[in-house]
């Protein structure tokens, strides 16, 4: 079981949803990225995505475009991002996922990329412009290196495509919530529940939703649908605003804790998922927390070496929003 699979299985056992946070590597610097990732893991991020900047990010909105340009101007390259991951791996145990475009991966060399990334401690890779039809060469190398190649499913994906993507995606399935580029939106699309239902009919793999999710309230709504919520632009914009400030890391950490608060534990299973039973999905790793999950405990919690990961216990967690309007309120309101 890969680190991503184990993470989702463990969260599932606890009735918890994953908070997936995105940072643009090298924005404002790789040293800052390193500190931000450590803080994110400490404050509740369950998976961290690291963007590898590309000169022509055609799937990204203005916030992430600007971050990519800053990161490139700061001299960020694929090899340097991989070095940063290698040093991070010693400090955090959250799954780390690289998100980029195909050309920087291709330029590095597919085999070299998969091997170097896996050696550095990267768990998964998402390539924004690599649909499953073109992914065989990278999938073969990633598979051989033990790297999960995560595919995206979009609102425009036809049923046969949804099945293809669900079958090919490893680690989790990335659901693009809306037709558009990355970036904050005021409201979640109305047809999201339908989209997730369609997907759940064909897969038991974990499902995370991204694009346009930026507030704790939106994250809470995603928590009622999927296994995880992916927040990118809102975090990247906070990094942009606080870059150079002594409170950068702390402010981002506070925001991440706010985002994580509504995601459990104790939420039970996401809707439309088959009950956890041995043999049907990944074997349970942790003792069942919620009532009625009925999964036989097999091993003790797989949290070895997770010291830094211990979450601030969400005081009065559940779906209520304990600390929603703090430092972030001003920024979040200004969409």
């Amino acid at each position: 079981m890969t680190r991503l699979e184990a993470t989702f299985a463990r969260l599932r056992e606890r009735g918890e949803r994953a908070l997936v946070t995105y940072f643009m590597a090298g924005d404002p610097s790789l040293a800052d990225t390193r500190r931000l990732v450590i803080e994110a893991a400490r404050r509740g991020a369950d998976v961290v995505e690291l963007g590898v900047p590309f000169s022509d990010p055609l799937a990204d909105g203005p916030v992430i475009q600007r971050a990519a340009m800053r990161a490139l101007a700061a001299g960020t390259t694929m090899p340097r991002v991989l070095e940063t991951v290698a040093t991070l791996r010693a400090e955090v145990s959250v799954p780390l996922v690289l998100l980029s475009y195909y050309n920087p991966v291709l330029a590095f060399g597919l085999e070299a990329f998969a091997r170097t990334a896996a050696d550095a401690g990267v768990d998964g890779v998402i390539v924004a412009d690599l649909p499953p039809e073109e992914a065989d060469p990278l999938a073969a190398q990633a598979g051989a290196a033990g790297l999960d190649l995560i595919h995206l499913v979009a609102p425009t994906s036809t049923p046969p495509r949804v099945r293809l993507i669900a079958r090919r995606s490893r680690g989790f399935i990335y659901v693009v919530a809306l037709t558009g580029v990355t970036g904050e939106r005021r409201e979640l699309p109305a047809d999201l529940a339908t989209q997730i239902r369609r997907l759940r009919l064909v897969t038991t793999k974990p499902v995370c939703i991204g694009f346009g999710i930026s507030t704790p309230a939106q994250v809470a709504a995603i928590g009622r649908l999927a296994d995880g919520a992916i927040v990118g632009s809102a975090i990247v914009r906070l990094v942009e605003e606080r870059a150079g400030s002594p409170t950068l890391v702390e402010d981002v950490g506070t925001f991440i804790a706010e985002l994580k608060a509504p995601l459990g534990p104790g939420l039970g299973d996401p809707p439309q998922t088959p009950p956890v039973r041995a043999g049907l999905r990944a074997p349970a790793r942790t003792p069942p927390v919620g009532a009625g999950l009925g999964a036989p405990a097999k091993t003790p919690p797989a949290r070895d070496g997770l010291g830094a990961h211990a979450k601030t216990p969400p005081a009065g967690a559940g779906l209520g929003a304990p600390a929603r309007k703090t430092t972030r309120a001003a920024g979040a309101a200004r969409l």
Binding site: A59, Y102, P131, L152, V153, A154, T156, S157, R161, V176
Partner: peptide
């Protein structure tokens, strides 16, 4: 050649 685009554009 090929089709290297975000999934949203594949079906279209």
């Amino acid at each position: 050649g090929g089709r290297f685009v975000p999934e949203t554009l594949m079906a279209p």
